[in-house]
Structure formats: C-alpha cells, structure tokens
Amino acid sequence: MNPKLKKELPLIAIVLIPFIYLAYIWNQLPEKVPMHWNIKGEIDRYGDKIELIIIPILLPLLIYIIFLVIPKIDPKNKLQNMGNKYQNIKTLLTLFMSILALFIIYSIKNRSFTNPNYILLSMGVLYTILGNYFKTIKPNYFIGIRTPWTLENDTVWQETHLLAGKIWFIGGLMVVFSSLILNGQSNLTVFIIITMVIVLIPIIYSYLKFKKIKKTAP
C-alpha cells in the first residue's frame, strides 16, 4: 500500500464517520428537521432533512480537503519544515470538526440542543490545544499568525507565535471556565470578547515588533 495513502486512511475514516451516522439514522428522521437553535437552546428554524448533508461536507470533509490542497499550492514548500506538526494539526482539526458534526446531527435527531455551552466549551479546548502548537509553527503562508510583518521577518514570526501561544492557551482556559459557570448570552459575549482579544493582540504585537526591529536596524 502507498505509504501516503496508509497515513491518510485514519483521517479518511474520521471524515466518513458523520456521513455513516447520518446514513444510519436517515430513515428515522422526519422530512422536516430542526436546523437552527437560538442562544437559549430553542429551535427557531426547520428545514428539509436533505440539508443535513451539508453539515459533514462543510465541517470535516472541507477541512480535510483544505489541508490536503494547501501543501500542493505552497509556493516555497515552507510547510515541509513543520514535519509531523502539520499532520498533527490536520488530524486535530479534522477530528474536532467530525465530532462537532456528529454532535449537531445527534442534536437534530433528538430535537434537543441540551446545552449550547458545549460548543463554546469545545472551542475553548481547541484554543488551548492550538496555543500549545503556535510556538512550534515555522514561518509559512497558510497556518499561524500570518500578518505582513510576521511573513516579512522570521524574528517577528517567532516572537509573535510565542506570545500568541500563551495568549491562546490562557484564552482557551478562560472560555472553558466561562462555559462552566455562565449560560446563554452572557457566555456567548464572553466568548466573543476573548476570541477578539486573542486574535487582535498577536496582530498588533507583530506590527509593533516589526517597527521596533526596523527602527533599530543599521
């Protein structure tokens, strides 16, 4: 068997799980199924069950395809410098999206979104895991804090990702904690604020760091 194909088989299986589960429960579903819940966990839109196919397509399948395509269009093959870390990130995000798709389909089948906080809590866990990876990501055009300043200077890239790793890890823990103690709109608001902070601070830092380096350069 082709070594590359053998390496991808577990990921292909992960991608297929939501499709298989959807096929298994298909005949149990009514023609009209819940398609959206509000922040209180109440159903506020129904749709045809054929729309459910979009869920595993847009979540695990699309993410997996994107990660397959990116190395082939990487203009300078910088992703190869990441070694196994690229494969690890691809596995992590594909698995996360597959679990999320399963959770959504399961909730639709049971017409119950028992606790909307579960999705935000899972996002917090994802933030903490990605935070651990940031410090090891090498300069590239596709993954990480890709600003004009990090892409222009390797030192700016490294220091920005060291800072981002810490911020994303702490931010993820804060999201998890808030999901355990807050509900509804309060938890969503906290999640949005934390997400904006952990995204904007590394971007601003990369600009300031780049300007400082340029100013001190001979």
Rank of each mutant, 00 (worst) to 15 (best):
K6F: 03
Y133H: 04
M82W: 12
I192F: 08
P34F: 08
S122Y: 14
L11I: 07
G124A: 02
H161M: 03
P202H: 01
S186A: 13
I99F: 15
P218K: 14
P116I: 11
Y205H: 11
T91W: 14
K49E: 08
I25A: 12
K90T: 14
Y207R: 13
Q28L: 12
N2T: 11
R45Q: 14
I53C: 09
F210D: 10
D74R: 12
V33R: 04
L22P: 11
F210T: 08
I66C: 05
K4H: 08
D154R: 00
G165M: 05
I14S: 05
K49M: 06
W37M: 11
T160N: 05
Q158P: 00
P75G: 10
P139A: 02
L62S: 13
T189C: 01
N27W: 06
I73M: 08
P71I: 06
G83N: 12
D74G: 09
I50E: 15
M196F: 11
P148N: 06
P30R: 02
L130R: 04
Y46G: 04
K109M: 13
A164N: 04
L180S: 00
Q185L: 11
P218L: 13
Y141V: 00
K72T: 15
N27L: 07
T114V: 15
N77G: 15
R111W: 15
V197L: 12
G171A: 06
Q185K: 13
V199K: 00
Y64M: 02
L9D: 02
F96K: 02
I201M: 02
L95T: 15
F177I: 14
K76T: 11
K211S: 10
K40L: 12
P18E: 09
L11P: 01
Y133L: 03
I66T: 07
Y106S: 13
S98Q: 08
T94F: 04
M97A: 15
P139S: 03
K138R: 13
M35T: 15
S179P: 02
E159S: 05
I70H: 07
I108L: 07
P56T: 11
I192W: 04
L58G: 15
I25R: 13
L173K: 01
F113K: 01
P10T: 12
I25M: 13
Y64S: 05
Y127T: 03
I170H: 03
Q87H: 14
V176Y: 06
F210I: 07
P18M: 06
I73A: 08
N117Q: 14
E159V: 03
P202K: 00
H161W: 05
I192H: 04
S178A: 11
L58W: 08
F96Y: 14
G144D: 02
I108T: 12
T150V: 00
K40H: 10
P30T: 04
L126R: 02
N81V: 05
L61R: 02
P18G: 09
L93A: 01
S122G: 13
K76I: 05
N110C: 04
W157P: 02
N38C: 07
V199P: 01
F113T: 03
I129M: 01
P30L: 04
D74H: 11
I105R: 11
